[in-house]
């Protein structure tokens, strides 16, 4: 018994060390990237240290292409939310409420954009709309991103709808509510938390997206495609500043999210 316990201690220790090493691996590169944002050397570097500076933050604020990129990213993200949520919700209703022979096939088609490479989504959208003479741009980006982000929202809505107590809807209808009234007063409120989650996820997915966007964006640009093109021309610590901003935002948002979950869990335990 004691040898077994000892063996377990050993393996726990090894695992703990492993986890620590893994997290160092995850975070050290981000630290390197962030640090270079404060280096007064014009090529991004942490090894050629020329002293601390905030000049690159100022330069970012004067960089019109990047600022316009942020605006374009926001436009696209808003478009994607408006497109993906209704599509995802409709797909979820049909898949959860209709039990037919083709249910699995429909499901496979609708989730397929999640399973094929992002560049292919961009390319197929570009070719398809090219036939009706719509060139690459913000609209095509919304279409290309929407095809897979809608699938994400659909999966979220399906999970929620499967937990729904259909009795409430039935009761409302039996009591004479019109189906539209019932939908507005029972179904939508029930789905509201998921609608918000889906909107946040759609927003983040859209802002982040590069591989699909780079094919569909045409002559326009988003923040991320602009960053991508800077790797070819004009790499400067301004990109690192964007990195720092991303890191700070993400840490704050993720902390809030985890704390929220933690509080929910404790509340459930207390009950």
């Amino acid at each position: 018994m004691s040898t077994q316990r000892q063996g377990r201690d050993w393996s726990t220790l090894v695992l703990d060390i492993y986890v620590v090493v893994f997290f160092v691996y995850l975070f050290a590169p981000l630290l390197v990237m962030s640090l270079a944002a404060f280096n007064a050397y014009e090529y991004p570097s942490v090894t050629q240290w020329r002293g601390w500076t905030l000049q690159w933050f100022g330069e970012l604020a004067r960089d019109d292409r990047i600022l316009q990129g942020v605006v374009n990213s926001l436009i696209v993200a808003l478009g994607v939310i408006l497109v993906a949520l209704p599509l995802g919700l409709s797909g979820a209703f049909i898949l959860t409420r209709l039990r037919g022979r083709y249910n699995n096939l429909l499901y496979a088609i609708l989730v397929s954009p999640l399973l094929i490479p992002g560049i292919v989504l961009g390319i197929s959208t570009l070719i398809f709309w090219g036939r009706v003479d719509v060139p690459g741009g913000l609209f095509l980006t919304v279409m290309a991103q929407g095809s897979f982000i809608a699938a994400y929202s659909m999966l979220l809505f399906m999970a929620r709808l499967q937990r729904q107590d259909r009795g409430l809807e039935e009761a409302a209808l039996d009591l004479g509510a019109s189906s539209f009234f019932m939908f507005r007063r029972i179904t939508v409120p029930f789905l509201m938390p998921t609608i918000l989650t889906a909107a946040v996820i759609a927003f983040l997915q859209s802002i982040e997206n590069y591989n699909t966007t780079v094919f569909a964006i045409g002559g326009d640009w988003t923040l991320v495609t602009e960053i991508g093109s800077r790797f070819r021309f004009g790499l400067s610590p301004v990109i690192n500043v964007i990195g720092v901003i991303f890191v700070v935002f993400t840490v704050i948002a993720a902390s809030v999210y985890v704390l929220q979950k933690e509080r929910e869990r404790k509340r459930k335990l207390a009950r």
């Binding site: 995850l26 981000l30 982040e208 590069y210 960053i227 790797f231 964007i242 993400t250």
Partner: peptide
């Protein structure tokens, strides 16, 4: 979640 949520381009850039 933090590194997962940070843009892919920036992570590769690191």
């Amino acid at each position: 979640i933090v590194p997962y949520a940070i843009n892919e381009l920036l992570r590769v850039y690191a």
